[in-house]
Each structure stands twice: as C-alpha cells, then as structure tokens.
Design a protein around this nucleic acid. Structure first.
Lengths: 198, 198
DNA sequence: GTCTATAACAGGATAGAC
DNA sequence: GTCTATCCTGTTATAGAC
C-alpha cells in the first residue's frame, strides 16, 4: 500500500456536497472542488474516474440515502404522527443548516438538460418525499386526496423557503417553514396561520 | 450609420432571459447566448460591453421592471381583491410559461457569491413581492401579522412550485399553486384544502 | 452594428514520478 | 493514493475589416 488516504472518504463527500449545494453543477470548478476537499485535482480523479459528473452523482446519491434513513424512514414509523414529525423537523433543520444550505434537488436540476444524469434521481426523490409526507397526513386522519395535496404543498414550501432564505440571505423563511410544517401536514385547516377568523 | 440592428433589442433581451432562466449564470456560455440571440459573440459585446455579467444584470432588471408593472402594480389597485388576484394569476401563468420557465431570482442567486452583482436586486425583489401580497391580504380583511405570513407563504409556494415543476418535468405543481393562490392569500382558513374535518 | 479571426485564459482531464 | 506538470478544449474577450 503506497500512501494512506490523506482525507477520509466521508469528509471528501461532505466537502463536495457543500460546494455543489452552494454554486450548483456548472458553478463548481475542479479547482474549487480540490480546494474544498484539500485534495489535488488528480487525486480527485483517482477517486472519481468519471470526473465532475461522477462527483455530483455520488454526492446526490449519498444525500438521497441520508434522506431515506433520516427523513423518509422516520415518517413511516408507527409512532404518533406528531412525534414522527418532530423528529423529521429536527433532521431537516440540521440537514439544511437552518436554511443556510441549499437543496441539491434544486441546484442540480437543469431543464435544458432534461434527461441529464440527475433528472431521474431528482424526480424520484420528489415523488418519494411527497409520498412519505402524504402517508403521514393520512395517518393524521386526512383522506387520501387531501393528504396528497398537503404533502405537495409541504414540499413546495420546503423548496420555496430554501430559495427565499438564499435570496434574502436570512434563514428566517426556512425557520418559518419548519415551524408551520406540523400544521401544514397534520393540523386542522382552521389552525393554520390567521388568528383572525374562526 | 453603418448597419441596421439585425435583431431588435427587445428580442435580444428575451432570448438572453430565456437562456439564463434555463441554465443559470455559470451554465450560460457566450456561444449559447450568441446562438439564442442570433448575434455573434462580438456583436453581443458591442451591446453589452460589460460582458456576460452585464447581460444578466440587464435581463434581471428588465424582468423586475416587467414584474413591477404586471404583478406588483395590479396588486395595489383599488379593485376588489379577487379581481386583482385573477389578473395577477393570469400574468404569472404567462410569465413562467405555465411553470416551464424557472425564476431568475432562483437561478441567479448564489450564496457563495453573497454580495454578488445580483444579490441586492434579488433581495429587494423578494421583499417587494411579499409586501405587495401582504397588502392584498390586508385588503381582504386579514390583520397585518396574518397578512404578512400569508404573503410569505405565497412567495414560498410560488418558488417551490417552480422548483418542483422543474424537478418533476411537469407543470402540474405550478398549476396547483396558481389554483390555490386565492385561498392562500384571501380565503378563509377553513376553505383551504381538506374536505375532511371542520 | 455586425462580422471573421484571433488572442488570452480557465476549465476539465491525464501522464508519470514517488 | 497523492503529487507536479502538462495537454487540450471551450470560454471570455478584443481587433479590425466591412
């Protein structure tokens, strides 16, 4: 064995992920990725013979795997919906660093490159998340149709709050989203936001 | 006068806008922009001495101006809120081509380049839109705090629905958003989505 | 104002020593 | 496995003819 890994695989992935989430696929240059990981460009190519595309693919796959175990699986538990959701909210907050980190599903999606290397995974991820949220809403007592609508709205709000947080340079929109998520998914309609009517 | 403008200014801007909305700032190459406009690269530089950055800046400014007259101004009319909103929904549908075109506020925002040339304009645009939506919600009878919350949620849903439409390759999420916008901004809480409880 | 041609540079990718 | 050095392509940007 010639040399030991100077940087651990997991931290390489974390650094790459950070860059892609910040600047997107085309925005990420190899120089940037090398600096972020602490590896030289050639070393990166040793670990990712497929180049930048493979890096992004593995980062995406890794993020989706994390999502599956930390977000989707907890949503399918037998625990009471409120408890499940509390777990998920906590994990979401950590995953997006309180709104400071963007979502790969947004940063890697390019409509021009439909059928790009990411589009299938992205589409599947959106569908899976909607499904998981909808399951929770069903368990909370909503019928199938209403549950699906609530789930879709929740995903929109998640993505939209991240976009807005990025645009405003403030994590407030994301925090607002997290705070409202229980109501959006399981709350009664009247409990929504306005203390006005009722 | 040497040669006439072979391509009108307004159509140049439209073509540039289209490219930036599709692939973002770094994703757009001059070759791409030249082909989209029908001009040569050198001709583009004649109109935009500041290069790609100036093109993006002017495209953004132009889009924001359009937004001001076609979205924000109608929201501030004296007409009944429902009518104003109908106008706005129609314009939004056109502006985003039914969800097929992304939003520049999302595509040009890069958290890495905070204080980039676009961030100030983007931040201002988000704030203005929230303000305008909130004004409508107030006129519909909601108190200031509730109106602001509804407005923020509406902007999140707008951005999120666009992200989701792009990711799924379907305009359905955006259409769902448009359909629900009246309820979200002016509707009573109970009218929301679920026919289940109440 | 627009074009052809080209300079100057950065980006992605590879070779080969250690 | 990692490094230095290099290649090649595509990109930004400019010069100069028309």
């Amino acid at each position: 064995m010639a040399r030991p890994q100077s940087v651990e695989d997991s931290v390489v992935m974390a650094s790459l992920s950070c860059v892609f989430r910040d600047v997107g696929y085309e925005g990420a240059s190899l120089a940037m990725l090398a600096q972020a990981t602490g590896l030289q460009k050639a070393s990166l190519y040793h670990r990712f013979p497929g180049g930048k595309q493979q890096m992004a693919e593995e980062v995406l796959a890794s993020a989706l795997a994390w999502y599956e175990t930390n977000i989707l699986a907890p949503l399918r538990t037998e625990e009471p919906p409120t408890e499940r959701l509390a777990q998920v909210v906590k994990h979401l907050d950590g995953f997006y660093s309180g709104g400071k980190q963007a979502c790969l599903l947004n940063m890697l999606a390019s409509p021009r490159a439909e059928f790009g290397p990411f589009s299938a995974a992205i589409k599947g991820a959106f569908e899976a998340l909607v499904l998981a949220f909808a399951g929770l809403a069903r368990d909370a007592g909503h019928d199938a149709r209403a549950a699906k609508l609530r789930a879709e709205r929740a995903v929109m709000l998640l993505q939209g709050s991240l976009v807005m947080s990025r645009g405003l340079g403030s994590s407030k929109p994301f925090k607002t989203f997290l705070a409202g998520l229980p109501d959006d998914l399981i709350g009664t309609p009247a409990a929504h936001t306005t203390p006005t009517r009722r």
